[in-house]
Amino acid sequence: MVVDDHPMWREGVARDLTEAGHEVVASCGEGRQAVRVIGAARPDLVVLDLQLPDISGVQVIRGLRAERPDVRVLMLSASGEQQGVLDAVKAGATGYLLKSAGLAEFLDAVRRTAAGEPVFTPGLAGLVLGEYRRLAAVREQAPDGTPDSAPRLTERETEVLRLVAKGMSYKQIAERLGLSHRTVQNHVQNTLGKLQLHNRVELTRYAIERGLDE
């Protein structure tokens, strides 16, 4: 589903997606309309503008995920303003791409976002990482004052987790470590289970919070 208040831009994005082999199930110019139709349209992924005329993109994300919790959201915005990026990610956006991105970069972001991979315009990635670290510092201790304890991961799981935190795809991780794509998937799934996380976005946040992306 494509949500953008500029008709020419919205139609252009929908056309590019269709020509790339994706099925566009809905196209909306307002946030409230997107929240209303998501239940019937049942998109796997929403390409969403941050600035909409009725409600903010952040409010739309919350509404979309309330109606369809497993939907992936790729923000496509002209703004790289710090607070807007962070608010979108905290609300549940899987990725954030600037409208200045080229077509190939956009289609790659769509593919990766649909697969649950966190995707950010390179200049925004450091901003998001820094915020996660700041939040981690605040949560360094448990509520009772005792240090936060983390489940034990194997050396290989930690290595894979570090590369996930850097935003690498499964294919890239497999090539880097000389493993099969399936083996990398298994390591990620095992790590998700140990950490009681649900997807790669949460896993990335966990890794970043512990400085594993460095």
Rank of each mutant, 00 (worst) to 15 (best):
V184G: 08
C28Q: 06
L129D: 13
E67M: 13
R111E: 14
R72T: 02
V89T: 01
Y170I: 15
V160L: 10
A174Q: 07
L179W: 04
L64Q: 08
E131Y: 15
Q172M: 06
P147L: 03
R36T: 12
T113Y: 10
P118W: 03
R32N: 02
G21V: 06
R112G: 04
L124G: 13
R156V: 15
A101L: 04
H6N: 08
L161W: 00
V24H: 04
F120H: 15
E23M: 01
R182E: 13
L203V: 04
R72M: 07
G57A: 06
I38H: 03
L163Q: 10
V110H: 06
Q83N: 14
G211P: 10
E81H: 13
H22W: 14
E159K: 04
P7I: 04
V160I: 12
L86E: 11
G84N: 02
V60K: 00
L135Y: 07
V85Q: 02
D108Q: 15
D49T: 01
A88P: 10
G63L: 04
A165F: 07
A40K: 10
R62L: 13
A41N: 01
T121I: 00
V128Y: 07
T191V: 02
K194V: 11
R15G: 11
I38Q: 05
T154F: 13
G12R: 00
R205N: 10
L98Q: 06
V138D: 11
V35S: 02
E209I: 01
L50T: 04
T191S: 10
I38E: 02
R210I: 05
R111F: 03
N199L: 08
E209T: 10
E131D: 12
Q172G: 09
G29Q: 08
L64G: 06
V46P: 01
R182K: 14
H6L: 10
G130L: 09
G84K: 08
H22D: 13
G57S: 09
S27W: 00
R156W: 11
A174F: 07
R36C: 01
L64D: 08
L135H: 14
L103K: 12
A20W: 05
D54Q: 11
L163N: 05
Q185R: 09
R139A: 12
M168G: 00
E155Y: 02
P7F: 05
W9N: 11
R210M: 01
Q189H: 14
R32M: 10
N199M: 08
L127E: 03
S27H: 01
A91Y: 03
A93E: 06
R112Q: 13
D108A: 15
S79Q: 12
P118D: 07
T158V: 04
I55F: 10
D144I: 07
V119F: 01
R68G: 03
E11C: 05
H6A: 09
H6W: 04
G167N: 02
V60C: 03
R210N: 05
